[in-house]
Design a protein around this nucleic acid. Sequence first.
DNA 1: GATGAATGAGTTTTCATTCAT
DNA 2: GATGAATGAAAACTCATTCAT
Lengths: 223, 223, 223, 223
Amino acid sequence: MTKKDVAGATPPPRAKRLPRAVRERQILDAAVRVFSERGYHAASMDEVSDVAGISKPMIYAYLGSKEELFAACIQREATRLMEAIGGVVDVDLDPEEQLWRGVLAFFTFVGENRDSWQVLHRQAGTQGAPFAAELAEGRRRAVAMISALLDRAAGREGVGAFAEGRTEPLAAALTGAGEALAEWWLEHPEESPKAMARRLMNLSWMGFGNLVLGRAWSPEKSA
Amino acid sequence: MTKKDVAGATPPPRAKRLPRAVRERQILDAAVRVFSERGYHAASMDEVSDVAGISKPMIYAYLGSKEELFAACIQREATRLMEAIGGVVDVDLDPEEQLWRGVLAFFTFVGENRDSWQVLHRQAGTQGAPFAAELAEGRRRAVAMISALLDRAAGREGVGAFAEGRTEPLAAALTGAGEALAEWWLEHPEESPKAMARRLMNLSWMGFGNLVLGRAWSPEKSA
Amino acid sequence: MTKKDVAGATPPPRAKRLPRAVRERQILDAAVRVFSERGYHAASMDEVSDVAGISKPMIYAYLGSKEELFAACIQREATRLMEAIGGVVDVDLDPEEQLWRGVLAFFTFVGENRDSWQVLHRQAGTQGAPFAAELAEGRRRAVAMISALLDRAAGREGVGAFAEGRTEPLAAALTGAGEALAEWWLEHPEESPKAMARRLMNLSWMGFGNLVLGRAWSPEKSA
Amino acid sequence: MTKKDVAGATPPPRAKRLPRAVRERQILDAAVRVFSERGYHAASMDEVSDVAGISKPMIYAYLGSKEELFAACIQREATRLMEAIGGVVDVDLDPEEQLWRGVLAFFTFVGENRDSWQVLHRQAGTQGAPFAAELAEGRRRAVAMISALLDRAAGREGVGAFAEGRTEPLAAALTGAGEALAEWWLEHPEESPKAMARRLMNLSWMGFGNLVLGRAWSPEKSA
DNA sequence: GATGAATGAGTTTTCATTCAT
DNA sequence: GATGAATGAAAACTCATTCAT
C-alpha cells in the first residue's frame, strides 16, 4: 500500500489565534480528505494534523478522539449531501420529476465532492458498530425522503400502498443502485452527471422489463 | 470500539498434526469470520489465529501475509457465490426467468453466508489497491453474467443494444441494489429470501414507473 | 548466548521534556553502546531504548529505523575518529613523523572509545550492503589520508610511485594491521597507546626484514 | 536488505539413507554457504536446511543448535585454512622464504574459498562471546606459527628476542593486514594471489621505510 | 532414519493519546 | 490558546526448536 502524500490544497498558512469555528472547519476539511484517501483505520491523526496545519492537541481539544472526529465528518458530509438533494426537490412537483431532480442532484454532488462521497459510502459503512448511529441516521433521512416520494406517487395514482406495504427497502435499493453507479463512475470519469442520472432513472423508473423492449427513460418525457 | 470476542462456533478442538489442506480450510474459515466482523484493518492476525485454533506461524506458512490471506478469502468466497448463482442459471431459459433465479440464488446465498457476504461486500471494495485484482475479477464475472443476460434479452426482442450501448453500468447498479437490500435485510431478518428477491425484481424488472401504477412483479407471471 | 545487561553508566535520570538535539545525542550514545556489545543483528531496539532511558517511539521519531540508527552511529563515530587523527597530522611534517602521530592518535582514540571502535570495526563491515555507503565513505577518507602520505613520502625521496603504483591496498593493509593490534590490545589492556603505536610502526615502517636484524623503530629516531 | 537466493550448486538430490558422515558434510557445506552469504544472525536454519536438501530435524540431530552448527563451521574452515598454510611451510627453510610461502598459500586459499573466508573473517569475529573459543583457538594457532617463525629468524641472526619480547602482537598485526588485503581483493578480483601476497610481503618484510626509498620486496630476491 | 506440522517467544515498527511548557 | 515532547499498547511478521507420524 503506497503512501504518497495527500497533497493538493496547501495547508492554510498556520495563522494564529483563529476563532474556534474556523479551526474546526479546517480540521474537518482535512479529516475528510485524509479519511477518504486512506480509509478510517489507515488514516493517522498525525496526517490529519499535518494536512490541517493544526497541532494534534488542538484536534483533540476541539473534535475529540479519532472516532468522534470521524463521526463528525460523516455527519457534516451527510448533511451537505441531504441539503444538496433537498434543495432541488419540490413537493408540489410530479413524483417522476422529483425523482429525476433528486437523482441528478445526487450525481452532481458526488461529482463535485468525491472525498465526501468516499467517506460516506466507502468508509462509514465499513467500520463496524461505532459509526452505525451517524450512518443510520443519514441513511434514514435519505430513505425517508424517497419513501415519502413513492408513497405520494402511489397515492396520486389512487393505488394506495404498494410493494407489499414497504417502500422503504425499495428506497434503500435505489440508494444502493446509486452508490454502485457512482462507484462505476469513478472509473469512467468521462461521463456527465446527467448521463449517470439517466442511467439510474432507466433502471429505477422503467425497469429492465421496459428496457429490453426498447423503451428507455429520458428527461424530455418527464420535463 | 468494543472488542467482544468473535465467538460462536467453538474452535475446532486443536486436533494435532492435520494435513495442510485441512488446516488451510480452517484458517480461511476463521479469517472470513474475523474479517467480516472487524473489517480488514481492525482484524488482527492474533484473533484469526485464536479463532482458528491455530498458531500464527502456521497461518503465515500456509497463507502468507495478512494481505494475501485476505485476498484468499475474497477469492474463495467470490467463487462460492458465483457458483451458487451460476448453478441455477440456464442460458436456454427466458431472461426474466433467469434473472429471477439468479436473484433468488443470490439472496439465498447471502442468507446462509452472512460472513462471506460481509467480506465480499463491505470489506473487499474498501481496502484499496492491493485487492483490486481479486475484486475486479469477481465483479467482472458477475457483471458479465448479468450483462450478457440483458443483451440476450434485448436481442430476443429484436431491439438490439439498449441503454446507450452499455449494459455494464446497469449490471453494476443491479448488484448495488442487491447489496443494499441485503444490507437492509440484516435489520429485518424475518423476511424470506424469496421476499427479498421479489423486491429486487420489482425494482429492476418493473421499475418504479410500473410500481406506482400498481403493477408489481411476481414469480408466477414469469414462471 | 548470555544476556547480561549492558549496564554501566546509569541511564540519564529521565529528565523530562528535553530538546530534540539532546535526546538525539543520548540515543546515539546508547545505540553505540548496545550495537558494540551485541552486534547489529543481536541488538534490539528495546535494549537501546532501555539503555537510553527513552521510549522507542522517540527513537523512531528522531533517528528512524534500526538501519538508519545504525548508519547514524557509524557516521558519527567515523567522523570522530577521523577528526581525532586529522587533528594531529600536519602536512608540513616529515611523513614518518606524520605516520607516527596518526598511528598514535588512532590508538589513543581506540583506547578511549572502545565502543565506537567496536561498532566501526566489527559491526559496520559485517552487515552487508545497507551500510556500505557510510562505511565506504569513512574507509575512503582514511585510506586517502594514508595513501597521500605515502605518495608524498615517495615523492620527497625522488622515487616516484612505488608499490606497483598502488598505495591504496597498502593503506588498507595498514589499517587492517592497526585493527588487529587494537583487537589484541583488548586482551592486553595493560599496554599503553604509545606501546601499541610503536608496534604498528615497527611492522609498517621497518618491516620484519629489519626487525629480524635487530633494527627496531623508535619515536626518538623520528622526532 | 535483499533476499536473493543463495543459489549455485544444486542441492544434492535428496538421496535417502546416507551415512551420517556424508550428511554432516552436506550440512556443513550448506551452512558455510549460508552463513557466509547472510551473516550469522540473518541466516535461518530454514535456509540451511533448504540449501542442504536435508530436513531441519536432521540438522538438529547431527549438528545440534544453530550456535553449535556455526561453531562447527568455524572449526572446520579454520582447520582447512591452517592445513593449507601448514602444508607449504617447511621449518628448515629460510624464514623469509617461509613467510612468503605461507602468505602465498593464504591468498591462494582465500581466492579459492571465498565462503570459508567470509565465515572466518567477517562472521566469526563479529558474533560476540559464544564463538570466542573456536575463534581464539584458530587465531592462536595461526599466530603461534608466525610467531615461531619470527623467533627462529631472530635467533638465526643472533639477535634474540625482539619487538620488546613479544612477537605475538606483531603476528596478529600481520594477519590483520592480510585480512584487510583479502577484503580489498574482493573489490579488485582481477589481481592474482601472487600479486596480493607480494603486497603483504612488501609491507611486512620491507616496511614503508624501505618502500619510500624505492626498495621493494620481490620473490626472486628471496628465492 | 527422516520429515511435515506445529509453536512460544521475540523483533521491528506504528499509532492514538496526553503532558509540560 | 497552542505545541513539541513523550509513551503505553498493540500489530505484523519471523525464527529456532521440537513432536508425532
